[in-house]
Amino acid sequence: MVNFILSPAWFIGIDAGFETVTMAVAALIALTSLKFYRLSNMKKYYYFGMAFGLLATAFATKVFTNLIIYYNFIEQNSFGIAQTVHKAIGPATNFFSTGLLGYRLLTLGALLILYLLLSRKIRTSRSIKSLLIYFVLIASVFSTQVTIVFHLTAAAFLFFISMLTLKKYYQRRAKNAKYTLAAFSMLTISQLIFIPGIYFPLAYVVAQVVQLAGFITMLFTFRKVKNEKN
């Protein structure tokens, strides 16, 4: 039987709450970036908005999938009806696998766009972009069988994004860039902690907390930007 629930019983629902917050932060950043694109017609705002829009959609998918599975889990445990459990397993597996695939594909797609944008390679050749998209697809599909693949791939993307952010911080010394660097670094670490989280529920909890902290830091950066006056 596929183990759907990595979360310890006491954390069930709380992780969905955390991910709802991260979804909201990603959506806020996406909408602001797209607003700046509408004003300036500068493609970088569009790509940045699209990347965070994909992230927001990814987390929305994960929250929805998890809540459905958690609800079934709680129902099954509350009523303990063997027949209901037996009937629920087939469709639940398909539903969970589809939701998980959607979440992973959208997340890796978002990280790919962010990496290409920040490394100034968004206008790179179509063949290279096609290869990278193929890589993201393969990693997403394969990760439904081997979960570690997703977290390693996401960690790799986030590591390179963090390095690019560090480089830009040293080049431009923008006062808020250090918070963005901290945010991406935390997200990189959270993906690495999710790996032992597959086997140890406490690690899963820590990974969720670190991931949330990363997005809260990004929200902090966003607030500082919004408070800038002309």
């Binding site: 700046f36 004003l39 300036s40 940045f48 952010t165 911080y169 923008a174 918070y179």
Partner: peptide
Amino acid sequence: DKGRQFSREYKKMKEFQESFGL
């Protein structure tokens, strides 16, 4: 009007650009 709005939002756009490394 769009140009005026751009000018008003300029500092926020610039700070957004600098903060996120765009």
